[in-house]
Simulated assay, not measured.
Amino acid sequence: MTNPPLTVACFPYDTTRPLFDGSVSTDGIDVTMETATTLPSIFERLIRRNEFDIAELGLTFYLRLLETGLPYVALPIFPNRVFRHSCIFVNIYSGITEPGDLVGKTIGEFGTYGQDSGVWAKGILMDEYGFNPEQSRWVIGGLEHPAPPFDFIPHPHPADVDVNAAPEGKTLGAMLEAGEIDALFSANVPQCVLDGSPNVTRLFPDSEPLERDYYRRTGIFPIMHAIVIRRELLQHSPGLVHDVYRAFSRAKDAAADRYRQNRRLYQVQTMVPWMNALVERNGEEFPEDWWPYGVAANRATLDAFLRYHYEQGLSTRQWRIEDVFAPELLDT
């Protein structure tokens, strides 16, 4: 089948890099791979200008626009997954030492109330620790550079949740370090933490055992983003959805194979000490496919995110998986 040239935009993760360097075939599809310095830049270009044929998009960005009519449909391809116990940072003078201490506190969040990482962090705290977002105050802004809330997506939130923009000229990272906010839910590690600020720590300083235990109990490896494709492309080329799914799957499998094969060489392509031990430990706890695509292997994870999105007042309805993804791939 001959398809028109397509523009694909995503971040060059280890699981997508084979598409950038051409080491994985795209089944004869003529693609131009693009990326950007930040993921929100890709999201904005997609949402504002429909700039790409296929692109990575945050799940909450997609769901917020699904109700109003989005010319893209999601595929069950998930290039970005991160455990989120580790993404909650607190000022050490805030009095926050456990989740219950977040009550009455002021919490920062990047870009929007309920960014993908924030949806997961809030949802996990709600399920595991009885957290209630409406019992805290929320400040939305830029992490390291002053910025207003994203203006290219809707900003729904329950009426009883106190949400405000950060003061002009202020950044969330600096506000956290100075104690102007008590906590921060962040997809990225704040620069003050990277610089070793004594004023900031994680809510869960030893987060890895908690995240591993969470995975063992729930089977959930949190999904942040999906790949979306222009709907009109599928009307003209119905088989394209399977071609794209296979191409991304092969790229992901190639990354996994590299980790497995490089155990023989002690993962020397990374130069990270003890990387082999980490790969072996993960291999004992995860199935053979660490980052499965498709619906079946991700149903529990997707159902949790869709529930969290609704419970946090970010959707007017609780979406079903069947409503969200391309019907041609619901049997994957």
Rank of each mutant, 00 (worst) to 15 (best):
E328I: 01
E177D: 02
F248G: 08
G130P: 11
T37Q: 14
P156T: 10
I92S: 12
L19D: 01
I88A: 08
S315R: 10
S25K: 10
R81F: 01
A174K: 15
M126K: 15
E311P: 00
G111W: 11
A251Y: 08
I181Y: 02
D27G: 07
K122F: 00
T332W: 01
I321F: 08
P71H: 14
F185T: 04
A254S: 10
A178C: 02
R307V: 01
P205L: 00
D101G: 14
S136Y: 11
N298K: 09
S249M: 06
I29T: 05
Q135Y: 12
I153K: 04
P133Y: 10
V8D: 04
G196R: 04
I77A: 03
F286C: 09
D243M: 14
A277D: 11
G283T: 08
H85F: 14
A296N: 03
V244E: 12
D151C: 03
I107P: 08
Q312P: 01
L143Q: 15
E67I: 03
N262E: 11
I92M: 07
S186D: 09
Y129A: 15
D323I: 08
C10D: 05
D151A: 05
G69V: 10
T32I: 03
D21F: 10
A9G: 10
Y293A: 01
T201S: 08
V295Y: 04
A36Y: 01
D206T: 06
D162L: 03
L176V: 06
D116E: 12
P292C: 04
V161M: 12
A174F: 02
E128L: 12
E232W: 09
D323T: 13
A178E: 02
L125F: 15
M271Y: 02
S237G: 12
V324C: 08
L63N: 08
P133I: 12
L176E: 00
V139K: 09
D101K: 10
T32Q: 12
V8T: 11
Y72H: 12
D253S: 14
T2G: 06
L19A: 00
H225W: 07
I153Q: 14
V324Q: 07
I96N: 13
P198R: 03
